[in-house]
Design a protein around this nucleic acid. Structure first.
Lengths: 105, 105
DNA sequence: CAGTATCCGACATGATACTG
DNA sequence: CAGTATCATGTCGGATACTG
C-alpha cells in the first residue's frame, strides 16, 4: 500500500516495465510530473529495492533506472491491475447504470 | 489508482473478500478507522460499483456491504498484491542488504 | 543531464460530537 | 446501528529557482 499510495509509482513502474530509463526520459514519458515528485518516487522505489539506480560517468553524468528482480516480480501486480482496468472499462456507464442493482438509500 | 489511492480501501476489500459485513463489523475488523474514513471508502467503492450496499429494515436498521462481480474480480489484484508482499517479506533485511547491488551515490 | 532546495496550497485523514 | 457534520492537521504534490 505504501508503494501504490503515491500518485506516480504505478506509472513509473509502467515506464520501467519494458526497459531501463534515464531521469528525464521518465519525465517525458510520464507527461507532467515535477522533478521533485519523480525524485521522491525513484528514491522510494530504490530504497525498497524495487528499482536499481546506476550512474554512468559520462559528461554530463547519466543515470539509469531499472527493475530489480523484486521489481520485475511486482509487475504481476501491475499487469493484474491493468487487466482489471481494461476488463471493466466502460462498465459504469449510463446504460449499464440502469441494469445495476437498485440501491435503496 | 484512485481505488488504491486511499489508505483503507485495500483492507476494506480484504474484509469483504470472504463475506458481507456490516458497518460496525468492518470498523472492528479494521482496527482504528474513523467512521468518517470508513464512510468515505464505502461510498467511493459503492459508487464505483465495486461493493453493494443493502439496507435491512430492522430496528435499529442494519446495513450490509458485499462485493459486486466487479469487486470480486478485483480480488485478483488484491491477492496478487498480497502474494507479492508475502513473497518478498523479509527480503530487505540487514543480511540481504549486504548482498544487494551497491549503489554508487 | 540529473537532480536539490523552498515554498505553498489542496486534499486526505483523524478526532470529536451529534442523530434517526 | 449506521451513519452525518465539523473542525483540525499533516502530507503530498506542484511550481519555481538554482547547481555540479
Amino acid at each position: 500500500m505504501q508503494i501504490l499510495g503515491s500518485k506516480w509509482t504505478f506509472w513509473v513502474m509502467g515506464e520501467l516495465a519494458t526497459a531501463p530509463r534515464r531521469f528525464n526520459e521518465l519525465r517525458r514519458g510520464l507527461g507532467n510530473i515535477s522533478t521533485k515528485s519523480l525524485n521522491d518516487v525513484l528514491r522510494f522505489l530504490e530504497q525498497a529495492h524495487i528499482i536499481h539506480r546506476e550512474v554512468f560517468a559520462t559528461v554530463p553524468v547519466t543515470v539509469e533506472y531499472s527493475m530489480t528482480d523484486k521489481g520485475k516480480d511486482f509487475l504481476r501486480v501491475y499487469y493484474t491491475m491493468q487487466d482489471w482496468g481494461e476488463k471493466w472499462k466502460g462498465y459504469d456507464t449510463q446504460e449499464n447504470e440502469s441494469r445495476m442493482p437498485k440501491i435503496d438509500r
